[in-house]
């Protein structure tokens, strides 16, 4: 197990190195930081001095090595736009995005899995048909449209929920949380539904397809032939066998939720990393963009590791080393 984690971490290194190279390349090819920082009036001497102070006169590989070394320490320099350390900006924004992503993921799993099981078991009931039609909407409507529709109904017409922002937040050390205030919780509802809806319908359809597949297998027939109660057959035997693909997709989707909260955050003016990123893109604020890219890559690598470890928990056939030790 330990060896497996080590090997996975080692495999992650080239991935992160490749992402670092791409992030770094943005400095060289997307816009010119020197002209952005100097503004309109400058002398050639000022320009040369800035280039030297930024280290841009050094060879490519030296610059890249410096970038990687700094990135490893969490330093991505100053934001061009806000002239503040990028790490600080991201740390400030991360709690908002992570809380939103968590809520969206919880909604997607806690609603999507039961709906998938239900539609798999009772394929022909009208409720299953309704869920399937509904899921088509979730899959096909773009996120921004769903967000705007929700705002229209629940904020504008009904006036129940806020249409933008995080509400009141409580500061716990460096972490700002919206979970502890009523307005914070109310503000979470619409964005997390908007963000989670696509994943919810995806998970529901995946669980349904897997359930249909598993319910046809011999071991489910045999479980029935042994007279096990339906609950044990459906949830103990069938659902557990659908989990490996569901964990894979759900894991990747969680990464997606964090990385692509951009649209939802823009619609709801949610003060998270996605909003920071989109503002940085429009200002060509490359240090922030590079840092965001690296961070998202790290999130995906970490999630993949967790997913692989969950496989081990779910499926004994993957625990090859143990089986070999026992002498199968």
């Amino acid at each position: 197990m330990f060896a497996f984690i080590i090997s996975r971490v080692l495999q992650a290194i080239p991935v992160m190195a490749a992402v670092a190279l791409i992030s770094f390349a943005m400095f060289a090819y997307v816009g010119d930081p020197v002209s952005i920082m100097l503004g309109q009036d400058f002398t050639e001497a000022q320009r040369q001095a800035l280039i030297a102070s930024l280290g841009l006169d050094q060879p490519f590989f030296v610059q890249f090595a410096k970038f990687v070394a700094n990135a490893a320490r969490g330093e991505f320099g100053l934001s061009y736009r806000l002239s503040r350390p990028v790490a600080e900006l991201i740390a400030e924004r991360a709690p908002a995005t992570l809380e939103l992503a968590l809520c969206a993921a919880v909604i997607a799993m806690c609603v999507g899995v039961p709906m998938g099981v239900y539609t798999g078991l009772y394929r022909h009931s009208w409720l299953s048909r309704f869920f399937l039609t509904f899921s088509l909407v979730g899959v096909s409507l773009p996120t921004f449209l769903i967000g705007i529709l929700l705002i229209l109904v629940f904020s504008v017409w009904l006036g129940w929920l806020p249409s933008f922002g995080r509400g009141d937040v409580v500061q716990l050390g460096w972490w700002s949380t919206g979970f502890l205030t009523v307005s914070g919780l109310k503000a979470l509802i619409l964005p997390s539904i908007t963000l989670g809806l696509f994943q919810l319908t995806l998970i529901m359809r995946l669980v349904r397809a897997e359930m249909l597949e598993v319910l046809r297998t011999d071991y489910i027939k045999f479980a029935r032939a042994r007279g096990l109660p339906n609950r044990a057959v459906h949830f103990g035997h069938a659902l557990k066998n659908t989990l490996v693909p569901v964990i894979t997709i759900a894991g990747l989707q969680l990464g997606g939720i964090i990385a692509f909260a951009i649209v939802t955050e823009t619609v709801f003016q949610w003060p998270g990393m996605g909003l920071l990123f989109i503002q940085s893109v429009s200002a060509a604020d490359i240090p922030v963009m590079a840092a965001y890219l690296m961070l998202i890559a790290l999130v995906f690598v970490a999630i993949n590791l967790v997913v692989d470890l969950l496989y081990y928990l779910v499926d004994p056939r993957l625990r090859v080393d143990r089986a070999a030790a026992k002498g199968a």
């Binding site: 011999d218 071991y219 045999f222 042994r226 007279g227 096990l228 499926d315 004994p316």
Partner: peptide
């Protein structure tokens, strides 16, 4: 009928490789 299955009528299927749930001992 479920209570009768397994208790009064036992069933054995063709392929032992697929009749056992792979995830449980």
């Amino acid at each position: 009928m479920r209570r009768i299955r397994g208790r009064e009528i036992g069933a054995i299927f063709q392929d032992p490789l697929t009749t056992l749930n792979p995830l449980y001992t």
